[in-house]
Amino acid sequence: MSHAASIEISNVTKTYPPRGDSAGWKALDRATFSVSPGEFVCILGPSGCGKSTLLNILSGLDDQYEGLAAIHGRSVGQGAVRRPSVGPRTAYVFQEPRLMPWRTVRANIEFALAASNFKPSEWRGRIDNCLALVELSQFSEFYPLQLSGGMQQRAAIARAFSIEPDVLLMDEPFSALDELTARRLRQQLLTIWEKFRSTVLFVTHNAFEATFLSDRILMMTKGPGGKFCDEVELSDLSRPRSYEDVRVFEKSRFVVERLVSHIGQIDVE
């Protein structure tokens, strides 16, 4: 199992050292899980449970942790050299679009392609393809500040898929958008994902979102010392899924109940 896993996290503990007069904070306590290739997994948990910390470890941004974190069998961070031409490619969609405002949408995506060592001759085709998937074709020469928040986030999603990632990390990418826009983007994300079949690890505090999107939900307890406490299998919900589908709604209620039983209070949406 461990060799076939796309993402593997084993006994990962992360402690933020004490700073000034504030005490240290144990964000993750022996977290363990794995994700198979092509699987869409949501991590659901309350704020401050260490969800984002986990993504930062997997993306290599945070290399101060104990335990094992590996993508396609290669451990990340901790001195491991990340060379996209050799290793698996990961893409990251953040809570905010994180586009460079001085570059057009196209040039922003070109940056990711160049960083992942794609040949310049491939750029145009890849960018046009991905922008079409997020319905931004006419906006390729626009600057980010000329676009709405939802459009910017779509551009960020196009950037992520442009490098054809083996693993896509998403950190509450729709939480800053209004619900209608978020719905459209979730639907769009699933459509694109069906085409690319990247492994997706999607972090959210929204139980309905997690149910609608994923094959499997991993639940985390509150911090400090966030742990995985439960797992809900959703592969019986057939795809493509729809917002009107009663089964999705029923399942999400079930997920909320399970989450509440672990956390003890309703502070999740």
């Binding site: 953040f94 990711a112 960083a115 992942s116």
Partner: peptide
């Protein structure tokens, strides 16, 4: 944040 983004994109 932009620097983190760049690092995450290798």
């Amino acid at each position: 944040k932009l620097i983190d983004m760049s690092k995450a994109y290798h």
